[in-house]
């Protein structure tokens, strides 16, 4: 248990620092790179929670694709390289309020949902939690219990994809 705790705190601190870096950085590319650290940290947290599959999905989708698209977009359109753009604006107060509000909502939600229930990861390999993190279990629930929401989300994403293409096409 000690090891997990130590790792959790190391990751958590790193993530928080990187997250501050994301919003504090004056350089868009730096901000995106900080975001990579945050996302990698959350992938590691997933591993700590025995959700391996989700962790690697996080790596593949968020780091491997989303961030790369971010960087791609930034470099293609702005490419500031030398001069740091002034990304600052006077909405710090509003931002802080929203952040606090979000923190409150999420905390309340999590505490209400899980309370102080403990996660037992010292159990045998077949323990419920470890099983829940397996790809098979996940696939079963997605394609049986949650098949409708899953398909709905797919359609939503497809629609937005088509919309983006339509908007961006020049000819």
């Amino acid at each position: 248990m000690i090891a997990q705790n130590v790792v959790f705190w190391i990751l958590a601190v790193a993530m928080v620092l990187a997250a501050i870096g994301v919003v504090r950085s004056n350089n868009l590319v730096h901000a995106a790179l900080y975001l990579v650290v945050v996302l990698a940290g959350s992938a590691a947290q997933f591993i700590l929670l025995a959700a391996e599959f989700v962790a690697w999905v996080q790596v593949l989708i968020y780091i491997g694709a989303v961030i790369i698209l971010f960087l791609f977009g930034i470099m293609l359109t702005r490419a500031p390289m030398r001069e740091d753009l002034s990304l600052d604006n006077d909405q710090r107060l509003a931002g802080a309020v929203v952040a606090l509000f979000l923190l409150g909502v999420l905390s309340t939600l999590l505490i209400q949902a899980f309370g102080d229930s403990k996660i037992d990861i010292t159990g045998p390999q077949g323990s419920e939690l470890v099983n829940n993190g397996r790809a098979g279990t996940l696939a079963e629930s997605i394609f049986s219990t949650y098949v409708l929401p899953f398909e709905l989300v797919s359609i939503l994403l497809l629609a937005s994809l088509i919309g983006a293409v339509v908007l961006a096409r020049r000819d």
Partner: peptide, 18 residues
């Protein structure tokens, strides 16, 4: 440069030349 009928969109999507 921007053979787009929608001028507003053209401004938004203009990536600048290199």
């Amino acid at each position: 440069l921007n053979p787009l009928a929608d001028a507003r969109l053209a401004v938004e999507l203009d990536t600048g030349d290199m």
